[in-house]
Simulated assay, not measured.
Amino acid sequence: MANVVEPKLIDPLFRSLQKERFVTVCTIDHETGEPNVSAISWIYAPSPEKIYFAVDQRSRIVQNIRANGAIAITLIANESTYSISGKAHVKVEKIENVPLKLALIQVDIREVRDVMFYGSKISVEPKYEKTYDAQAAAKLDQQVMNALKNA
C-alpha cells in the first residue's frame, strides 16, 4: 500500500517541531547542482504549512537557497521517518537579539511524505548533546528558539 502524501505537517509532526530537534536539510548545491545535506537543530514550525530554521549567515545552506529554493527536510518522529519538501527563502538576513550572525530561513511546505521502509518503525529517536559549555549552549538555544517563535 502506498504511503499517503500530505500537503502539510500532520499533528504529531507539527507538535514535534515545537522545540529544538535534530533534522537533516537537503538543498541543491549552488556550485555543483548536486544534493547537499546538512544536520541542524534550530528548527520550529509556526504552523502546519510552514517551518522556520536558523543557520549561520555564511552557511552553504544559505548560499544554496539563494540560488535555488528547493529543499527537503528529513525528520525522524512519530515512530517513522518523514521527508518534508517545499520552497525555502531567507526570511531574515540577521536575527536580532542573538549573539551569532544567523539567518532565518522560511520553508513553505509543499508535501510531507512518510519515507520509512516497509514493515518497520523507529524505536528510538536520535539524541544529541552539545559539546561546548552547557550553560552557554542552553542560553544560545533559548535565544535562537525564541527568535524563531517570534518571527
Score class of each variant (00 low, 15 high):
residue 89 H to E: 15
residue 145 M to A: 01
residue 28 I to T: 11
residue 93 E to S: 12
residue 40 I to M: 03
residue 30 H to T: 03
residue 131 T to V: 11
residue 148 L to G: 00
residue 5 V to Q: 12
residue 91 K to G: 02
residue 72 A to R: 10
residue 130 K to C: 12
residue 128 Y to M: 06
residue 124 V to I: 14
residue 139 K to E: 15
residue 45 A to Q: 05
residue 9 L to W: 07
residue 49 E to Q: 10
residue 13 L to W: 05
residue 91 K to M: 07
residue 111 E to W: 01
residue 125 E to S: 07
residue 12 P to D: 08
residue 131 T to M: 09
residue 66 R to P: 05
residue 137 A to K: 08
residue 93 E to Y: 09
residue 101 K to F: 10
residue 63 Q to Y: 10
residue 41 S to Y: 08
residue 79 E to T: 10
residue 129 E to H: 12
residue 33 G to N: 01
residue 29 D to P: 03
residue 9 L to P: 00
residue 122 I to P: 02
residue 150 N to K: 13
residue 135 Q to D: 13
residue 133 D to A: 02
residue 14 F to I: 03
residue 108 D to S: 11
residue 87 K to I: 13
residue 33 G to P: 03
residue 69 G to A: 04
residue 5 V to W: 11
residue 128 Y to P: 01
residue 18 Q to R: 15
residue 94 K to F: 10
residue 3 N to D: 11
residue 119 G to M: 11
residue 50 K to T: 11
residue 91 K to H: 10
residue 30 H to G: 02
residue 126 P to E: 06
residue 68 N to K: 03
residue 67 A to C: 07
residue 29 D to H: 04
residue 135 Q to P: 01
residue 106 Q to I: 05
residue 91 K to C: 04
residue 151 A to I: 00
residue 67 A to S: 09
residue 74 T to F: 13
residue 132 Y to I: 04
residue 70 A to V: 10
residue 135 Q to H: 11
residue 37 V to A: 04
residue 72 A to L: 10
residue 76 I to P: 03
residue 105 I to S: 08
residue 124 V to F: 15
residue 119 G to C: 13
residue 47 S to A: 13
residue 17 L to D: 03
residue 78 N to K: 09
residue 4 V to G: 03
residue 23 V to E: 00
residue 45 A to V: 06
residue 114 D to N: 15
residue 109 I to E: 02
residue 63 Q to K: 15
residue 109 I to L: 06
residue 133 D to S: 05
residue 105 I to M: 05
residue 119 G to K: 14
residue 87 K to Q: 14
residue 61 I to M: 08
residue 70 A to R: 12
residue 108 D to T: 07
residue 31 E to H: 12
residue 122 I to R: 13
residue 131 T to W: 09
residue 149 K to H: 09
residue 146 N to V: 08
residue 88 A to I: 01
residue 74 T to G: 06
residue 117 F to A: 10
residue 131 T to S: 05
residue 94 K to G: 06
residue 86 G to M: 02
residue 40 I to L: 07
residue 91 K to L: 10
residue 122 I to G: 04
residue 133 D to C: 03
residue 24 T to L: 08
